[in-house]
Design a protein around this nucleic acid. Structure first.
Lengths: 100, 100
DNA sequence: GTTAGTTAGTTACTTTATGTAAGTAAGTAT
DNA sequence: ATACTTACTTACATAAAGTAACTAACTAAC
């Protein structure tokens, strides 16, 4: 292994390479959303969504907010770090429109 | 499932979400390369690299060229469709520099 | 002509990640 | 006490990825 590749780039790519991570972020770009909404809109399983949201929260990309209503409402939204991924999402959109 | 998401976008994201695909493309942005070079520079296993290169070739993103030297040399390079992913890679680079 | 060396893979087997479906916890309403 | 909601978690099955040994095709050395 040569590994002359920037470790930050590798880490970012590692994140995006995890299944569903990109779609979750993309979905949250349209505003704060609850668990079941994300689940049904992108078709991810609850098991993996739960796992990914925890990872994204730990990474400071997603914020979790609890509203003690009835039944409880929990909203997930993007932090500044998460919102900063918008240009990246646009790049994907552009490429997909032009080449797929 | 609501699935109001653009299917082209989903397909593009599906590609990038496969492990190693992004790194392979990134690596090929620095020029045509042979199998063993890609393998050692990004640390992917031969088994998966072989699989990914086939997928990328089928998708028209990567081109495979055989040079009947001794021992045989096989070079992988990006097509126009593959080169068009450069802005996307730059977006990832930018984000990783600013936020990681 | 048999052994060794090269690249580009493939195969068999193990470990990890993901999908699926049922179950739990906390709260309210009936 | 039973049912209903959301937000998870758990147990189990399947799919994807890692590892290491092996093959194919060719050349060069012994």
């Amino acid at each position: 292994m040569d590994k002359s590749i920037c470790p930050r780039f590798e880490k970012a790519m590692g994140f995006l390479s995890q299944r569903w991570t990109g779609m979750i972020i993309y979905q949250l770009l349209s505003g704060p959303q609850r668990f079941c909404t994300i689940e049904s809109s992108i078709g991810v399983s609850g098991r993996v969504l739960s796992e990914r949201l925890k990872d994204l929260e730990n990474e400071g990309i997603v914020k979790r907010e609890v509203f003690p209503e009835t039944p409880v409402r929990i909203e997930y939204s993007l932090t500044d770090k998460g919102l900063a991924l918008k240009p990246l999402m646009n790049s994907i959109e552009d490429w997909s429109q032009n080449w797929l």
